[in-house]
Computed example of a mutant assay.
Amino acid sequence: MSQSTPYNATGRRKTAIAHAWLTPAEEGKTGRITINRRGFEEYLPTIQLQNTVLQPFLVTNTMNKYNVTIVSQGGGIHGQVGAIRMAIARALVMVDEAYRSQLREQSLLTRDSRMKERKKAGRPGARKRFQFSKR
């Protein structure tokens, strides 16, 4: 039994960062996904979040062909899911360059640059103003 070198990639979304390692699944076994040493279904409680993470596999038709180990940190659950999805998509491109066009078409390789706007000085929030008083 020979272990092949895992394909690794990094994804980011908001303040979350995810590192993914893909290794080919063994013959006769389905690919398993581990996030922060916990099971995939345990870490992501809703079907919507689980489907978001599986989207790169669905687009490239590689479901259950790879074991995925993910280390995710920072941000909230939705930011982490976006970072995980991007990391998996980038790792799949490293596996086979032909997947790039399929993933690019679904915007899975594009970094979502939207971040929380910083609080400005002299204001209670990023955009909120103190109440105006005429008198």
Rank of each mutant, 00 (worst) to 15 (best):
V68A: 09
E97C: 09
Y66S: 04
R85S: 12
V81L: 00
A87G: 11
D96V: 13
G75E: 05
G76M: 01
A83C: 12
Y66L: 11
L103M: 06
M86N: 13
S72F: 00
R90P: 10
G74L: 04
V81T: 12
A98L: 02
V95S: 10
N67C: 08
V95R: 11
R85C: 14
G74T: 05
Q102E: 12
R100Q: 13
V71D: 06
A83G: 15
R104K: 14
R85E: 07
Y99C: 01
L92W: 00
Q80G: 05
R90I: 09
A83Q: 12
R104Y: 05
G74F: 07
S72G: 05
L92K: 00
N67G: 06
S72D: 02
V95G: 07
I70G: 02
Y66Q: 07
I77S: 04
A89V: 05
A87N: 13
Q102G: 02
G75A: 13
I70N: 02
S72R: 03
I88V: 15
A91H: 11
Y99L: 02
N67F: 03
R100P: 04
Q80P: 10
M86L: 14
M94A: 05
S101I: 07
Y66E: 08
R100F: 04
A87K: 08
E97L: 13
R100T: 01
Y66K: 06
N67R: 08
H78Y: 15
V68Q: 10
V95I: 14
A89W: 04
V95H: 03
S72C: 02
I77C: 03
R90Y: 09
A87S: 14
V95F: 03
K65R: 15
I70S: 05
V71F: 10
L103N: 13
L92E: 01
Q80K: 13
I77H: 07
V68E: 06
I88Y: 06
A91L: 10
A83W: 09
L92T: 01
Y99W: 03
H78M: 12
E97T: 14
Y66I: 12
V68F: 11
A87F: 11
S72N: 00
R90F: 07
A98P: 01
S101Q: 09
G79P: 00
A89N: 05
L92C: 05
V68D: 08
G76F: 01
V93P: 02
G79R: 00
E97M: 10
Q73Y: 14
V81D: 04
D96P: 15
R100I: 03
D96L: 14
S101H: 11
I88R: 07
Q73P: 04
H78P: 06
H78F: 08
